[in-house]
């Protein structure tokens, strides 16, 4: 018999492709979404993969993907199901607020009585680059929380993980249920197979209103940061080193 079945929720965000060139929308408070490709956010994609592998190894369990967002998030939820997640929940809002605590409250309300052993998040989302929602959800649910995890295992009701710190790492153990936020290091997200894509069409996707509560953080302005001045090549090979050292001393004043 394999490990006992684990019920896992993975909270995923839909974000624009990080390689895009961004423009600011005419509203001045958002990016212009025209022509951008959107997908499951990078770290949340790793989290989906981590969940699928835990349940594959355990030979059972359930993986549920959850997203707060407008109907466009259904595409991302379907994609996660085509990778192998069993079902999906959309917590519907017209647009996702910049208030991470409000998003966490909506997720916590949904997850509270779900009987999940493990709730996974990305360590931060590409767009907000904030890293708030996972830890805040853990705190709202009163669960132990392990952030920035690059390896994750579950055995006999306990989790073990490698957590990335600044310039070091920790190996930790914790009781389940728990919240874990995922860093790179777990296997790269798989591509959906054709069979997976077909199967996903029949998997349940439930949609219900999000219970956001008060939204107290809002975007007042979005702008592109100033461009760096164009680079310059000062020379070729080792013979350029004296000139570089001179510039570092006299111009950049860093030596």
């Amino acid at each position: 018999m394999g490990a006992p079945a684990v019920k896992i929720a993975v909270c995923i965000k839909r974000t624009p492709d990080s390689e895009s060139r961004f423009r600011i929308a005419s509203s001045g408070v958002a990016i212009d979404e025209a022509g951008l490709k959107f997908d499951i956010d990078d770290f949340a994609g790793y989290a989906v993969e981590a969940a699928l592998q835990i349940n594959e190894k355990g030979g059972g369990g359930e993986t549920v993907v959850v997203a707060v967002g407008p109907d466009s998030v259904q595409e991302s939820l379907r994609k996660a199901m085509s990778m192998g997640a069993d079902r999906a929940v959309q917590l519907k809002v017209d647009s996702v607020p910049a208030d991470g605590l409000a998003v966490a409250k909506a997720l916590a309300a949904e997850l509270k009585d779900g009987g999940y052993d493990l709730i996974l998040f990305g360590k931060h989302a590409f767009d907000t680059s904030a890293g708030v929602v996972g830890t805040a959800t853990a705190e709202l649910l009163g669960l132990p929380c392990v952030t920035a995890v690059s390896q994750l295992d579950v055995a006999s009701g306990r989790g073990s993980a490698r957590r990335e710190l600044e310039g070091a790492a920790e190996l930790v153990e914790f009781p389940l249920p728990a919240v874990v936020t995922i860093d790179e290091g777990v296997a790269r997200p798989r591509y959906p197979s054709l069979k997976g894509i077909m199967a996903a069409k029949k998997k349940p996707l439930e949609s219900k209103p999000a219970q956001l509560g008060a939204v107290r953080v809002s975007v007042q302005k979005a702008e592109l940061p100033p461009e760096r001045p164009a680079g310059r090549i000062i020379g070729e090979g080792a013979s350029a080193v004296p000139e570089l050292v001179r510039l570092l001393q006299s111009e950049a004043k860093v030596l």
Binding site: G100, F126, T128, S129, A130, V217, V219, A222, L224, P225
Partner: peptide, 30 residues
């Protein structure tokens, strides 16, 4: 909460911060 802010200002009853989002590609004022 606002994370990873690079500037903090007070504007009446509100606190206004700057935060580089989108992996530093968009500067957001919150």
């Amino acid at each position: 909460i606002a994370s990873d802010v690079t500037e903090i200002n007070v504007a009446g009853d509100a606190i206004v911060v700057k935060h580089p989002g989108y992996a530093n590609k968009v500067l957001v004022t919150l």
